[in-house]
Amino acid sequence: MLHRVEHVMGFPVSLRVDDEHVPESAADAVFAWLREADARFSPFKEDSEVSRYDRAELSEDALSADLREILDLCEHYRRATGGAFDVRPPGRRLDPCAVVKGWSVQRAAELLKQAGASRFVLNAGGDVVTAGGPWRVGVRHPEHADQLCTVLSLTDGAVATSACYERGDHIHDARTGRPATGLLSLTVVAATLTEADSVATAAFALGPEGVDWAAALPGCEVFAVDAERRVLRTPGFPTAEAKAA
């Protein structure tokens, strides 16, 4: 069994692999890739591809295929939310972190599968990809750091939560330019973390209407707590049984 925790992209990333035949080099590859993604796509690193493109030092034709994919995803969710989700609103720098995190961690999970891992959990700052299982995943209470508001059961899939309890009002509704309001937290379960993380952030930017928007997407299940402390969840959200191991 492999177990490793490292600090990458500004948050702790933990990996557990229960397959005995998977070599330690698989974990090495996961964390090497995450460090590479951070170096290439972080808007907080002056020499990253994202920063250079934002400063117009790189043309569209000079962009890597990876960054083109990321920007295409960003544009997809900008259009899907009517502009509420926008990684480059007027007057602000390009910041695709809301897509990069899930996208890069999902790719790390694919590296594990290529190495032969069939039962693992990869937790990147609370956003999780699983295989095998079932795995129990807790969702933090939006107002009480030492409590969970729900626990879900995942076998092969991903879960991501958007909220303001860690980084303050960092998610903005780009239609207004102001911090998103109306929700305390919103959790999305999807087949990949690329989708779960992007949808969770985009839905949070939409505010209360984001719950129905995310719930209408094929393959997405939603759990949300609104500003009135009401819990909203889709019927298929995989809440774990209390007696589950």
Rank of each mutant, 00 (worst) to 15 (best):
A56C: 00
S42F: 06
L122V: 03
A174H: 07
P179D: 01
E221A: 15
T130C: 14
G102C: 06
A214E: 10
H21P: 06
L58C: 09
A203H: 04
G138N: 08
L112I: 13
V151P: 00
Y53V: 02
E24S: 07
R79F: 10
V8E: 07
D173A: 08
R119I: 01
G83I: 01
R35S: 11
A109M: 05
L73W: 09
D66C: 05
R40W: 09
I70E: 08
P12Y: 08
V159Y: 04
A245S: 13
V5E: 14
R35Y: 05
C149R: 13
V50E: 12
V137L: 05
V151E: 14
K243C: 12
A115P: 03
L94P: 06
C164Q: 13
A145M: 10
L34Y: 07
A26S: 14
R16W: 10
L122E: 06
L63A: 08
R16C: 07
D47G: 01
D54M: 05
S59R: 15
L154N: 03
A203Y: 04
P23E: 10
P134I: 13
V199S: 01
R52V: 04
E209L: 02
K113S: 06
A216E: 09
V5S: 13
D95F: 08
G177S: 10
V222P: 05
A117V: 01
T155L: 00
V17F: 02
V222R: 07
D156G: 08
A205D: 02
S59T: 15
L148Q: 05
P218W: 12
A115T: 00
F44D: 13
F44L: 15
F31N: 00
C164I: 04
L122M: 08
A190T: 12
F120Q: 01
A180Y: 00
D86W: 02
G132P: 09
R178I: 01
V137W: 00
G207V: 06
R78M: 00
L58F: 12
G182H: 08
G126Y: 01
S104A: 15
H7Y: 15
L63E: 07
P90C: 09
A65F: 06
R230D: 09
K101L: 12
L148E: 11
T130L: 03
R175E: 06
R35E: 09
V211Q: 02
R4T: 11
V5R: 15
V231P: 01
D66S: 13
S42I: 12
A56E: 12
L2A: 05
G177T: 10
V87N: 07
I70R: 04
A224D: 04
S198V: 02
A227Y: 03
V8G: 07
E221P: 03
A158N: 04
D72Q: 08
Q114K: 14
C164A: 15
A174N: 10
P12N: 04
W33V: 02
E57S: 03
V87T: 06
E241S: 15
S64K: 14
K101F: 02
G157M: 07
L154P: 00
A163L: 08
A244S: 15
A131G: 10
T187S: 15
L154K: 05
A117T: 10
D18C: 09
E75H: 13
V99C: 02
I171P: 04
E49Y: 10
L206I: 03
D54Q: 02
S104C: 10
E46V: 14
A190H: 13
V225L: 05
D72K: 06
A227F: 08
T234A: 11
A29F: 06
M1Q: 11
